[in-house]
Nucleic acid binder design. Structure first.
Length: 549
RNA sequence: GUCCCUGUAGUUCAGUGGAUAGAACGUCGGCUUGCGGAGCCGAAGGCCAGAGGUUCGAAUCCUCUCAGGGACGCCA
């Protein structure tokens, strides 16, 4: 429909160009949904763009275009467009007939859970790597924010038609593990206390439970750290991930990667491409050739790998070995200095433009107006599990998920704990859930078969409004998946709007009335709303959309 | 010093270069005797941090200034 329309407009522009004998390159036709209903269902600003190119009055151009457009449109779109008009500065607005929307109700129901599915992604092999909290302590709020984000992004990609894998990178092989081991040995009073990096009850507990093991292996920090790291993974992080309702396809071990010789192989590959050089006894990678501000060290002068080396190897593994076409990494803001070198290194490996990195800004937890600091190193870290306890409701995980997902990843968000729990009844999550409960209540009690509704009876403003909202979903999936910023928070706003439109419709009209035909039609609309609410809520946002409260 | 992010209602935040800048919470005032009253409607509340610029048109793009958050390594 939109494509047809674009084409028609384009043709009209071309015809007009011919008439006046003007020479200008025709701008791309862009369609948009006007914010205000009074401006129609679709509008375009081509006339203003042309006006700019030709230095002519855009309004006159728009009026001419409308004249050109009219007869062709009626034929082509099967009278779905009722009215076309040129307006003030030079917009051209199109008004759809209600017939167009009425038919959509049946389409939504028939499509079922596939309503928002698209094949634009063409099965591109895509990886989303996210959360990846260091296994040196429980998952904190930043991890949760990135976790929810990555999960929803992966869901979106799936709907868009990518073949998606979700991955967690476990730093079980590098210096973090040594730091963890040192913290443990310090706690066990085997080495001095000032070597401690991490502290917390989980370390004390682990030391208590593993005294003999620690004693036996006190000279092998790698071994202690590795075991402790995986115990932290299994006892703290994975249970939190489960509470977040996130499923990973792969927990990718850094240690396994290192032991496979991947780092050597990657460095050889880079040497072969003549992208390395020796200086001051260290091996450097020419990342500046790909836009970095300085070259980066791969192998330090003492012969050890620099931190970045295993990560380049990891990305070589993603693209070179596992053949992902597209990878999105979701990192905390503390990795920001690191984005450029990873992007440039990936380009150096021969995969420019295939890696996207999204950074999440910090989360501040606000309680009674003041901030609770979160830092793993100070013993005062606020963990995800603690957040759930602090919220305290049975839907706490959904509330947390929705709160985090309601903010653009770029905002430094304040998580207002008092609001999250005290006003939970007015929380958007509950607003949405309640809409679902209402919908299911209505459908549960319906005694009439509404499988063949006369949808022509759906014509009240609140009804058409609701349908308009429902059919936006596929567009939003496309927007989120195509925009490099991957603005997943749009879904949180969208689902609230769907709930709002439904509540308004419900408030204005009775679904079940004496008029059997009207009842059928409205039940169908309710069923369509249920479908969209469930796809957006459960399949994309990952929150529970209940049938009853 | 360099880099990243942010600055929009009292608060937390939306806002694809377009038409009267929106929502939630908070405040104030109404409606709804109900197919689920966890709903609906209205009001008050804005120099979109500031100054320049680009444009027919800027909260949005560019430059500078100010303010806040975060990060800089042959640490990991």
């Amino acid at each position: 429909m939109h494509e047809e329309l674009k084409k028609a407009i384009y043709e009209a522009v071309k015809a007009q160009q011919k008439d006046c004998g003007c020479d200008f390159s025709i701008p791309g036709v862009e369609l948009e949904h006007p914010k205000d209903m009074r401006y129609g269902d679709i509008s375009t600003n081509v006339a203003m763009k042309i006006g700019k190119l030709q230095r002519k009055d855009p309004m006159a151009i728009a009026e001419n275009l409308v004249k050109q457009l009219d007869p062709g449109l009626v034929r082509m779109t099967q009278r779905r467009i009722e009215k076309v008009e040129a307006v003030k500065p030079g917009f051209i607005n199109f008004y759809f007939s209600s017939d167009y929307y009425q038919k959509k109700v049946q389409e939504i129901i028939s499509a079922g859970k596939k309503f928002a599915d698209s094949n634009i992604g063409e099965g591109k092999k895509t990886q989303v790597e996210f959360l990846s909290a260091n296994p040196t302590g429980p998952a904190h709020l930043g991890n949760a924010r990135g976790g929810f984000y990555g999960d929803v992004l992966a869901n979106t990609f799936q709907k868009f038609g990518f073949k998606v894998e979700r991955e967690y990178y476990v730093n079980d092989g590098g210096g973090q593990v040594i730091k963890l081991a040192k913290s443990i040995l310090a706690e066990a009073e085997i080495i001095p206390g000032d070597e401690r990096v991490y502290s917390g009850v989980y370390i004390k507990k682990w030391v208590d439970e593993n005294r003999a093991f620690i004693e036996e292996n006190k000279d092998d920090q790698q071994k202690i750290g590795y075991k402790a790291a995986w115990d932290v993974m299994n006892d703290y992080i994975k249970p939190s991930i489960e509470k977040m309702h996130i499923k990973f396809d792969e927990f990718f071990s850094e240690k396994t990667l290192l032991e496979s010789g991947a780092v050597e192989k990657t460095i050889d590959e880079l040497k072969k491409k003549k992208l390395t050089y020796k200086k001051d006894q260290a091996l450097w990678l020419k990342t500046t050739e790909f836009g970095d501000d300085q070259d980066r060290v791969l192998v330090k002068s003492d012969g050890m790998y620099a931190y970045i080396a295993p990560d380049i190897a990891y990305h070589y593994n993603k693209f070179g070995e596992r053949k992902f076409d597209h990878v999105v990494d979701v990192f905390g803001t503390d990795h920001h200095g690191y984005v450029k070198r990873l992007l440039t290194a990936t380009a150096a490996l021969g995969y420019p433009g295939q890696l996207d990195i999204r950074l999440l800004q910090l989360v501040r937890l606000i309680q009674k107006g003041k901030e609770l600091r979160m830092s793993k190193r100070a013993g005062t870290a606020v963990t995800f599990d603690e957040l759930l306890d602090l919220i305290g409701t049975k839907d706490a995980s959904d509330v947390a998920r929705f709160f985090f997902l309601s903010r653009d990843l770029d905002t430094h968000m304040d998580f207002d704990l008092d609001l999250a729990k005290d006003t939970s009844e007015k929380n958007p999550v509950y607003y949405v859930k309640y809409a679902s409960a209402r919908i299911n209540g209505i459908l549960r009690n319906a005694t009439i078969d509404y499988s063949k509704p006369n949808l022509g009876l759906i014509k009240k403003p609140a009804e058409i409004d609701l349908i308009k909202k429902l059919i936006e979903l596929p567009e939003i999936v496309e927007q989120v998946a195509s925009d490099k910023k991957y603005p997943v928070h749009k879904f949180a706003y969208y689902i609230t709007e769907v709930a709002e439109k439904f509540h308004k419709f419900y408030h204005d009209y009775r679904v079940v009335s004496d008029d059997a035909e009207l009842t059928k039609a409205r039940l169908a609309l309710v069923a369509a709303t249920k479908n969209v609410l469930e796809i957006t809520g459960e399949d994309i946002l990952g929150i529970n959309i209940p049938e009853r409260m």
